[in-house]
């Protein structure tokens, strides 16, 4: 396991990995899982997770990438079943903590076969609304209003290294910025029929 993950003690509790039959206990169990996922993603700035639970962790020093499956605890040799994992995704989606890449609702069916291994979700440890507010705040704070700013600048400029949204994937940023457009605070600009920049007013 990588050095960057700080997992709570309950992560070593074998029943965490079995879908509990008692419904109110299961709700707590799912809540526990969501906390584990959000806390870790936030701490390690992990923006995406695969449908199976794989997360890519980048060592800040060496830039080395480790893949870690949150739903498989190798130490105690326990895994969550795909059916239970889906239940967790569904709850996270309902609570706005998970976003499909295209911004559409997930089609999570326990009966759908052939999990596409490349299927990835965005993990929202802050809600889309909250992100939108933070970015709006940044525009105002850095006096970027009425200027065209590229998506790339927002999430990848070294000036923004200490901003909470630094390193955010651009498609996720796009979903967040759409909220500003909807609020009438911004317009987006295309290049080669793809949105690449924004002007906040």
């Amino acid at each position: 396991m990588t050095v960057h993950l700080e997992l709570p003690a309950i992560y070593q509790f074998p029943p965490l990995f079995t879908r509990q039959p008692n419904k109110s206990i299961r709700n707590k169990q799912i809540e526990t899982w969501i906390n584990i996922i959000l806390t870790n993603c936030e701490q390690c700035k992990i923006w995406t997770i695969t449908k199976q639970g794989d997360m890519k962790i980048i060592d800040p020093d060496t830039q080395q990438v480790t893949t870690f499956n949150i739903f498989h605890n190798t130490e105690i040799d326990r895994s969550c079943s795909p059916i239970f994992i889906n239940e967790i995704w569904q709850m996270m989606q309902k609570q706005g903590q998970l976003l499909n890449r295209d911004g559409k609702d997930l089609k999570i069916s326990t009966d759908s076969d052939e999990l596409q291994t490349d299927e990835e979700f965005y993990i929202l440890w802050k809600s889309l609304e909250l992100w939108a507010n933070e970015i709006l705040d940044w525009f105002e704070r850095t006096t970027q209003l009425n200027k065209v700013v590229t998506f790339y600048e927002i999430v990848s400029s070294e000036d923004n290294f200490n901003e909470s949204f630094y390193s955010m994937p651009e498609p996720l940023l796009y979903q967040i910025l759409k909220i500003l457009v909807k609020r009438g605070r911004a317009t987006m600009l295309k290049e080669n029929s793809k949105y690449v920049a924004i002007k906040v007013i």
Partner: peptide, 9 residues
């Protein structure tokens, strides 16, 4: 015609 996941579980 079940999914693999369902069969296994």
């Amino acid at each position: 015609k079940w999914s693999k996941v369902r069969c296994k579980s």
